[in-house]
Computed example of a mutant assay.
Amino acid sequence: MPFPVRVGDKWTAKILVCLRDGPRRFSELQVPLARVTPKVLTESLRAMERDGMITRTVYDEMPPRVEYELTPLGHTLFEPLAASCAWNAEHGEAVARAREEHAQRV
C-alpha cells in the first residue's frame, strides 16, 4: 500500500498552515505562497484534495467562487507537523554540519 501523506513535499505543509483558520480562495492562498507558481499550487491542491486533506467547494455565482478548506483528516496533520518542527529546531544545526562535512568529502 502506498504511503499517502504528502507533507514532505515543498508546499503541502505551507498550504496546510494557510488553511488552518478556515477556507480560502486560490488568490488568497497565492499571497502568502507568492514563491509557488500557479501551476504548482494547483497541482498541490489537487493532490491534497485527492488524498482527502482538503475540500474544494465551487459556489454557483458569477463569477464562480472556489474555496479550499481543510477536512477533519487534514487537521490531524498539525500534531505530526509540530513534532517535525520541534525535531528540526533541536537537530537542524547538526544536520547542517553533517551536510557541510559531507560536501567537503565529496
Rank of each mutant, 00 (worst) to 15 (best):
M1L: 15
M1P: 10
P4H: 07
P4Y: 11
P4V: 09
P4D: 10
V5A: 09
R6P: 08
R6Y: 13
V7Q: 10
G8W: 01
G8S: 05
G8M: 02
G8D: 02
K10N: 06
K10H: 08
W11F: 05
T12A: 04
I15P: 03
L16K: 00
L16V: 02
L16E: 03
V17H: 04
C18F: 00
R20Y: 13
R20M: 13
D21H: 05
D21W: 05
D21E: 07
P23K: 10
P23L: 08
P23V: 08
R24K: 05
R24F: 03
R25F: 02
F26T: 06
F26H: 02
F26S: 04
F26Y: 01
E28G: 01
E28L: 02
E28S: 04
L29P: 01
P32S: 00
L33S: 03
A34M: 06
A34I: 08
P38E: 01
V40G: 12
T42D: 11
T42H: 14
T42R: 10
E43H: 09
L45W: 01
R46T: 15
A47K: 09
M48L: 05
M48Y: 06
M48W: 06
E49Y: 13
E49N: 15
D51H: 11
G52I: 03
G52S: 05
G52C: 05
M53I: 12
M53Y: 15
I54T: 07
T55F: 12
R56W: 04
T57V: 14
T57Y: 09
Y59K: 10
E61Q: 15
M62Y: 15
P63G: 00
P64Y: 01
P64W: 01
R65M: 12
R65F: 10
R65T: 13
V66R: 05
Y68S: 03
E69S: 15
L70R: 02
P72M: 06
P72N: 09
P72I: 06
P72K: 07
L73T: 02
T76P: 04
T76W: 05
L77V: 09
L77W: 11
A82L: 14
A83W: 11
A83G: 09
S84Y: 09
A86H: 05
A86T: 09
A86D: 07
E90V: 07
E90Q: 11
H91S: 08
H91F: 08
E93K: 12
E93R: 13
A94Q: 12
A94S: 07
V95T: 09
A98W: 07
A98Q: 07
R99N: 10
E100K: 13
E101Q: 11
E101M: 13
E101V: 05
A103D: 13
A103M: 15
A103N: 14
R105C: 07
R105M: 09
R105Q: 13
R105P: 01
V106S: 11
